[in-house]
C-alpha cells in the first residue's frame, strides 16, 4: 500500500518549498506533529477494505456540462493589467526566471 513516510522537519521543509510557503523555524515542530496526525488519519482510511468499490473522482452524481466552441471573451488586458505590479508592451513583468 502507501509508502511509509516518516514525517520529519526536513520533509515539512521540502513540502513547504514545493508549495512556495515560507515556514518559520519556530513553527516546524508543531507543523511536523500536525502533518503526522493527518497522515495517520489517511493510514487509518487506507486500512478499509475497498474491494469492489469504484474510485470516486467526484462526489456528485452528475456529469460536466460543456460549452460551445465560441469566442465569448473580449480583450480586457488593460483592465486586468491595471492591478498588475508591473507591465510593459502588454506583457506582465515578473522577477527574472532563467532556464
Amino acid at each position: 500500500m502507501a509508502d511509509e513516510v516518516t514525517v520529519t522537519e526536513e520533509v515539512v521543509k521540502d513540502v513547504a518549498e514545493l508549495a512556495q510557503l515560507k515556514v518559520a523555524e519556530g513553527d516546524l515542530e508543531v507543523l511536523t506533529a500536525g502533518m503526522k496526525t493527518i497522515l495517520e488519519l489517511a493510514e487509518q482510511m487506507q486500512s478499509v477494505d475497498t474491494t469492489g468499490v469504484n474510485p470516486v473522482s467526484n462526489p456528485l452524481d452528475a456529469t460536466q456540462r460543456l460549452r460551445a466552441d465560441e469566442v465569448t471573451e473580449s480583450d480586457q488586458h488593460e483592465l486586468y493589467q491595471s492591478v498588475a505590479p508591473e507591465t510593459e508592451d502588454g506583457l506582465y513583468l515578473v522577477p527574472r526566471v532563467v532556464e
Binding site: D69, T72, E73, H77, Q81, G90, L91
Partner: peptide, 18 residues
C-alpha cells in the same frame, strides 16, 4: 476557436495578453 476552459480566442499571433 476558443480555449479549453474559457471563451477566449486561441488565434495565433495576437498582441500580448489580448
Amino acid at each position: 476557436d476558443s480555449k479549453i476552459f474559457s471563451g477566449a480566442s486561441t488565434a495565433f499571433g495576437a498582441q500580448p495578453n489580448t
